[in-house]
């Protein structure tokens, strides 16, 4: 799979800014919101936005089962709200999630919009917007493994983590217009690698 299609969940949130990053990393961008569209892509980005809203819409439009089935076999990258959807355990308030990664996440942990800030991750300027914090390892994730890799920390908390085909960042690299971001490059590489593994 030299030119994978990355589907960005487009129920609501920051979707279009991913296009130039994905294309610069050598993959194809698709905005997806129906089960037919989910089945047609090679990997998913769960974008920034409001996690509460996205959860409600996933429930209301009956997308939970189709997404769960797709997530079992395809790489997924959650950003900010997407990290919350991927976590094993969510607080402030407690809410349901897909449990793909063995992490516990606290919503709006830095505070409200007034506490949004920039950060430097992997020499790349990124934005933390009403961001969650990854508090601790929690459970085993969908893979059954408790171990996960911490790719970056910020103010002593992990902000970029990965376990197998699942990756999460609590910050937004897509709002920086220097294409592609290191995170998009890493994810597209991961998508290519996981396809190679599946073939092997």
């Amino acid at each position: 799979m030299s030119h994978p299609v990355i589907g960005v969940l487009a129920l609501q949130g920051c979707v279009e800014p991913h296009r130039p990053h994905i294309e610069a990393a050598g993959a194809e961008f698709a905005a997806v919101k129906t089960p037919q569209q989910f089945d047609a892509v090679d990997a998913f980005i769960l974008p920034g936005g409001e996690s509460t809203t996205m959860l409600k819409l996933i429930d209301m439009y009956g997308l939970w089962d189709s997404l769960t089935r797709n997530f079992k076999t395809k790489p997924v990258w959650g950003i900010c709200a997407g990290t919350i959807l991927m976590a094993q355990h969510v607080t402030n308030p407690q809410q349901k999630s897909f449990g793909l990664l063995p992490i516990s996440v606290q919503r709006n942990a830095y505070g409200r919009q007034l506490d949004s800030h920039h950060g430097m991750i992997d020499n790349y300027l990124v934005s933390f917007i009403r961001a969650p914090v990854i508090l601790s390892p929690s459970g085993v994730g969908i893979s059954g493994e408790a171990e996960f890799e911490i790719l970056a920390t910020h103010e002593s908390a992990p902000v970029w983590v990965r376990q197998g085909p699942y990756m999460a960042t609590t910050f937004h690299p897509e709002l920086t217009q220097d294409f592609p971001s290191p995170m998009h490059r890493t994810f597209v590489d991961l998508v290519r690698g996981s396809a190679a593994q599946l073939v092997a």
Partner: peptide, 15 residues
């Protein structure tokens, strides 16, 4: 880099 104020507006899109 998009400033943080516009960044929050980006998160509200499509809603």
């Amino acid at each position: 880099v998009i400033n943080l104020k516009v960044g929050l507006a980006e998160m509200l899109k499509g809603g």
